[in-house]
Design a protein around this nucleic acid. Structure first.
Length: 285
DNA sequence: TTGTGTTTTATTGCCTCC
DNA sequence: GGAGGCAATAAAACACAA
């Protein structure tokens, strides 16, 4: 087919390109090209036969911007697939093979890289957004749990306080002196209690101890919270700290290792890109 | 048919590298 | 300083709804 078609050749004389209005316009690599409307328009190729219609091309004015044929595009895509950068040799070969000017091949690759980059950016954005949405939803449910746990703690504290005061009154001297301060009361709740409750149970941290009083699994201690560093060392405080939760500053730990809210997001996005088999270097570098 | 939005081809200006 | 890359942009070619 079309390997014989040379769209711009007929009108090119060195650096001179004759436009439709017969004005010879100098066309160096960086020169201006007249884009004024010439009245004639040509429909886009609709059938393969049309593509190879010599007469059709001959009667067209050569100055119009022309779309490449599907075959040309196919070959260019194929070439782009193997390597998205174009060395001079390859450019010349491709141009010869396609009946295009090397400049056209270079331009096509340039534009193709731009399209690829745009697509990649869109895809990366989508991935990051969905990861963010999912994290946000996790965060919301954790905050709700936290509210429930706080209410539970308050209720338990009240019960305990009442019990201690009552027993001290009855037993009198048999009882050890218990100093109960509502503000500093330390409540120990067994993991079984937590697991048995519908809201995920309760666990309260010893005020003077960074680690859990109980060994049961808890948001306070396991992955969940630690992936959301809160405070100065965190990732710009997004989402905001949860009320009443001990912060990283409080418990003396830090977020060393650079874990932010989105660290896992970026990892996920990168992994995804590798799966797609497309290069990722330019975007994350 | 026409208006409007999208895609493709091409140019321009700036930047980096050798 | 020239070559090549990229971002921004123009303009032609198309697609499509009204």
């Amino acid at each position: 087919m079309g390997s014989g078609h040379i769209f711009f050749e007929p009108s090119c004389h060195g650096n001179m390109l004759f436009l439709g209005n017969s004005d010879p316009v100098f066309r160096g690599p960086r020169s201006m090209m007249k884009m004024e409307d010439s009245s004639k328009r040509r429909p886009f190729f609709s059938s393969p036969e049309e593509l190879y219609d010599e007469e059709y091309y001959d009667e067209q004015s050569p100055e119009k911007k022309r779309r490449l044929t599907p075959e040309q595009v196919h070959l260019l895509e194929k070439s782009f697939g193997t390597e998205n950068k174009l060395e001079p040799e390859r450019k010349t070969q491709l141009a010869k093979k396609l009946g295009l000017q090397p400049r056209q091949v270079a331009v096509w690759f340039q534009n193709r890289r731009a399209r690829w980059k745009t697509k990649t950016l869109e895809r990366d954005y989508d991935q990051l957004k969905s990861s963010y949405d999912s994290l946000l939803s996790d965060f919301d449910s954790m905050r709700k749990d936290n509210e429930k746990l706080k209410a539970e703690v308050v209720s338990l504290m009240e019960k305990l306080q009442g019990k201690v005061v009552g027993e001290a009154g009855v037993v009198g001297e048999k009882c050890e002196v218990l100093e109960v301060d509502a503000m500093t009361l330390q409540v120990k709740v067994k993991a079984e209690d937590r697991l048995s409750s519908g809201s995920g149970g309760s666990a309260v941290v010893d005020e003077h101890s960074p680690q859990l009083v109980d060994s049961g699994d808890s948001y306070f201690h396991t992955g969940h919270i630690e992936e959301y560093p809160i405070g100065a060392g965190g990732c710009n405080n997004i989402p905001p700290p949860m009320d009443g939760l001990p912060s990283e500053e409080d418990d003396g730990s830090d977020d060393g290792g650079g874990h932010g809210y989105f660290s896992n997001v970026f990892v996920a996005a990168e992994e995804q890109q590798h799966e797609d088999g497309e290069p990722i270097g330019w975007f994350w570098s």
